[in-house]
Design a protein around this nucleic acid. Structure first.
Lengths: 341, 341
DNA sequence: GATTAGCACTCAATGCGAGAGAGTGCTAAC
DNA sequence: GTTAGCACTCTCTCGCATTGAGTGCTAATC
């Protein structure tokens, strides 16, 4: 269904106004705001049409109109032009990332912070799991008599470690040898591919140092389990409190509680994302507590796997800004990841 | 100033009631609740006295009384008996900590979570900086041509690491040797004592591998800088939303924003804590945004330094429970840290 | 046929006043 | 010193009238 130009203009005008003020928009306001050459009465007729079509709704008889979720959907699909980061904002982001960061996690933290700050919405960034990273390096390091450190490094430079207990009697060179054998078996495998069978093979090969091996294997298994988890970093959750639609403490609590459960957020996102920035408006979200929120999200590519990031706000959201920001940020961080890792 | 028994009884009765209901307490309610043998009129006279003394206040003429902050202070100082964790709760905590945890950070996370959950307040736990830990072990690990990992372990088992770039030509045994020399210079020193002069000494001793050394030293310096930071872990911030005094979104925002700035919280606490659980009621807190909140906090000893933990809630707080919980938890975790690290 | 001016109508929001209810403070009796 | 009784105070709630923004309809106009 396509709208004629005047209806589009009116719809856009109402959306812009409503997004800004959170108040129903009246016919006179539409005329004034855009300096239209038509009268309020004409606008009223058009608004009535738009309401019949489902793009607008009235909170109550004889109030102004507000865009329906369908109206927002039409707008973002057919009319919206995204608004990328301006030079100033880009500058800020680049400067932020210029400061030394030593891990992907730090990078992601900063990105999330930036997104939340520039858009005034709540941001999330998901660090991809290391499942698809490759095993690169393992070492058993004697720390003190009876204690050693299992150190595991992936090809993306992610370092994982865990303390284990070992017999007092074991020597540094023995530990080194054991580490060496681990390396041989596991070298170059994708983390996700490291099977229990590989670990069993090691168990068999190194019978004489059973205890150390067992402890080390336990440590590795536990590290691998952990590594399956994607990490979610949420920033600017309190921005939600600025939105008048959440001045009700109860609604607010539901949303914030929802955000605390990071898995719930992840469950709402598709497994894998394309190149487009994606939008979920209000009831399009599955989660009950999120039916009054909108979600704008995009993927970003690391070498191995896809990370995800996005912005959350009320349905009455500046989609143009959210989409543009994500698009710009994606480009910038993909560039950085390509260079640095 | 000491109160006679009957006044104490009435004050306590009002505090208990008010803490539970958040409503002003009337004279009849006091009589009923405690099945007192005196009439409401008598209680009224006593309440009037208590108000004159500053322990009670009236929201408006002819409403019931609520305890003043001074009233709470008197109560916690002179009358309160702390209420430690019961067997059930202790069980839960021990069970929670029985599950494997691999780092002090994980331990602390769980403690914070537990405190928030059992008390329904907001908890914080501060992990002491590793400044007073001793340097235990350092190794340079070749990861791939041109890249190495600087690994630093303290006596508390805290592992820090950082990637550095090294010349392509360097061999594993050279790296090992360099690491060895680092160890000799730094061995057993407290992190805080490692001076630039030590690092300079290393720089001099290892002239021929200038580049590697410089990189490694930079990495170490940056790790040490980081390690000066105390980490604050806050749990159950949303519990604040359940308190009727914060049903106003604006107040709520101020509090939550305050909590987001972790340093602000740390600034409110004394440098070092004694054995007692400490209480700050309402206006006793310096921070402007915290004048309607109370803070209950205690220190816990690790080998090296003192950690801190506490609970935050409205002035109308179950201090007996908060103090008791912290006291119990402190005992338990000090025991665990003694055993495990 | 589309547009517009005019006007009656609707409904949330605001303000006001009466009534209810909880609780006090005072007085006088015990 | 304690208590019963009672007038008084103040909040809270409800209903009702008022206000004002904004609509929908009708009839006139372009």
């Amino acid at each position: 269904m396509t709208l004629d130009e005047r209806k589009k203009l009116i719809l856009e005008s109402i959306i812009r106004d409503y997004v800004e003020t959170a108040e129903p928009v009246g016919s006179r306001a539409v005329v004034k705001k855009h300096g239209l050459k038509i009268s309020a009465a004409t606008v009223r007729n058009e608004m009535s049409d738009l309401e019949d079509m489902g793009y607008l709704e009235q909170p109550y008889t004889s109030a102004g109109r507000i865009p329906s979720q369908k109206g927002f959907r039409y707008y973002v699909d057919c009319m919206m032009e995204q608004e990328n980061l301006d030079d100033n904002e880009t500058e800020v982001l680049l400067h932020l990332l210029d400061d030394s960061f030593h891990e992907v996690n730090e990078l992601v933290q900063k990105i999330g912070h930036f997104l939340a700050q520039t858009t005034k919405y709540t941001s999330f960034v998901i660090v991809p799991s290391v499942r698809l990273s490759k095993f690169k390096y393992l070492q058993l390091i004697p720390i003190e008599p009876g204690k050693a450190l299992v150190l595991l490094v992936t090809d993306l430079g992610v370092v994982m470690h865990r303390n284990i207990e070992v017999p007092q009697s074991i020597t540094a060179s023995e530990l080194e040898l054991i580490g060496h054998m681990f390396n041989q078996v596991l070298a170059g495998k994708k983390i996700i591919e490291i099977q229990r069978s590989d670990l069993q093979q090691l168990r068999d090969e190194l019978k004489q140092r059973r205890k150390v091996i067992d402890r080390a294997l336990e440590a590795i298994e536990s590290l691998l389990d952990n590594s399956n988890e994607e990490r979610v970093i949420i920033s600017g959750a309190l921005n939600i409190m600025n939105e008048p639609e959440f001045k009700d403490v109860d609604k607010l609590r539901r949303i914030l509680a929802f955000l605390e459960e990071e898995t719930q957020l992840m469950d709402m996102l598709p497994e894998s994302l394309g190149d487009e920035v994606d939008i979920r408006i209000g009831r399009e979200n599955q989660a009950e507590d999120f039916k009054e929120m909108s979600l704008v999200f995009a993927g970003y590519q690391t070498q191995g796997e896809q990370g995800k990031m996005g912005l959350m706000g009320p349905v009455r959201m500046e989609y143009w800004k959210a989409v543009g920001s994500l698009d710009s940020v994606r480009e910038i961080i993909e560039e950085i990841i390509r260079k640095r890792f």
